[in-house]
Design a protein around this nucleic acid. Structure first.
Lengths: 252, 252
DNA sequence: GCTTGCCAATTGCATATGCAATTAGCTAGC
DNA sequence: GCTAGCTAATTGCATATGCAATTGGCAAGC
């Protein structure tokens, strides 16, 4: 009734270990990261948490201020505290949206799904993710273009266990990566970056010569240890570079 | 006399803008980052800052606690607060020490300086760093080996303006990158990552075939806007990959 | 209905206070 | 000289208090 936005006060459970402010911080952090409190959820005000947890307002404030500093929540006077949306990207390799990547280059973007196959995972994929061969997966090959020229080739496997709605999706408006970002939760990702020679088929699709060097990004994504998707992005090497800038104490 | 470690209390200057605790935090942060308070320097105790700045202990504490959280200072009861050493590396591309990189692979490491040339910068280099052609630079080509096999080829330019001691250094014990890390300050670095085809000379040095794909990392390093060094690292593509792992809220 | 102004909820900031925990360095005793 | 124990310096944590700033929503007046 009163908690229309769904943040139940009782959900905040302290574990009794360490400083009180840190217990509060970790408890709320866990609720946010595990998705119990979705982005946009109204977090109980300091006074409510204070009464509920038996802590002083300053102690609650300290926990919430830290979480706000970490970007997990957003606070505004009078309106209160809400769970923030996860930041879209952090650093060099965290660019997850290819349309956005192209848009930043100032080039018009389009894409085409070249092939699509539902079915069982290949032995290779099943192996890398410790899947049962009976799990259903969706294979997609997508070509992204900037200014009409091939930008990157995407070869993706989606694990339907975690993303059942993907079966019904046509991926006509939104490329698979962006669609997944909007429709699936993820808690962990791993990137591997390497240089390869373009195979004949890759070269043909990317409009380069076979054997030309390419930057290959392999990304595997999980939600709470359950695999969500795996993708291999192949960038024509001559055309792309990843750039990052930072100082000894972090990003500049 | 009393401040044998050199942290002068008067060095902490507030700028009057924003919350007091944040002014204090930024003031001390600047002293650390700009190297005025070197790593290991004893930071004045809370009571001293409190008296000197006219703030309450809790306010000073708040600033220092935040800085400790950011890793810029280390605090211990009774011993007090000291400036921390900058973290050696942060994430995927921040690995600065190649010996360390090889050691992590569990392989024995060695290196050889293949060529060395003192003199004026080439037009190309002078251009990229906005140098005067009269500035002195040191060109070095170094091959790093893991288990006796070529691991990465390093082509480096050191700007002697910022690192005059480099002229006298033989680089027989320590490769140039590590030597610079220990002997030079830097405040900013930029990485660019791309895929290339090995040239004939690169291929020969790396014991691969000409045209084989390589991962190339170009790193440029500055100290307060003055260039310190520029380096190109060429990794045989088939043999190396960079891996990073994180969640939507940061590194895991 | 529309606007203006007020009230109250909520967070932001700073202070004062007290006690706990840690430990460097000194002191007393052997 | 050596050790055990004490003292005091320093940080860590929690609370209570008060006021400032912001602003959503209501009420009063037009």
């Amino acid at each position: 009734m009163s908690d229309e936005s769904g943040a139940r006060l009782e959900a905040v459970k302290l574990d009794g270990s360490g400083p009180l402010y840190d217990q509060i911080r970790r408890a709320i952090r866990a609720l946010v990261i595990d998705g119990v409190w979705a982005p946009g959820t109204q977090v109980p005000p300091e006074h409510a948490l204070m009464a509920s947890l038996g802590a002083s307002r300053m102690t609650v404030h300290r926990a919430l201020a830290q979480l706000a500093g970490e970007g997990l929540i957003t606070r505004r006077r009078r309106s209160g505290t809400i769970v923030a949306s996860p930041p879209a990207s952090h650093a060099m390799l965290d660019i997850l949206s290819i349309p956005e990547e192209v848009r930043r280059l100032g080039a018009p973007y389009d894409f085409a799904v070249l092939s699509r196959r539902d079915g069982r995972p290949t032995a290779d994929v099943a192996d890398r993710f410790a899947l049962k061969r009976s799990d259903n997966v969706l294979h997609l090959v997508t070509l992204h273009r900037a200014s009409g020229r091939p930008h990157v080739l995407e070869e993706r496997v989606i694990f339907l266990e975690m993303a059942p709605q993907a079966s019904a999706e046509r991926f006509s408006e939104t490329p698979p990566g962006d669609w997944l970002l909007r429709n699936c939760l993820w808690s962990q990702a791993e990137h591997a970056l390497s240089a390869i020679s373009a195979s004949a088929s890759q070269a043909a699709l990317l409009a380069i010569a076979p054997g030309d060097p390419c930057l290959q990004v392999e990304r595997r994504t999980w939600n709470q240890d359950a695999p969500v998707t795996a993708v291999t992005l192949t960038y024509p090497g001559g055309r792309h570079r990843f750039v990052g800038r930072f100082g000894p104490y972090g990003a500049v």
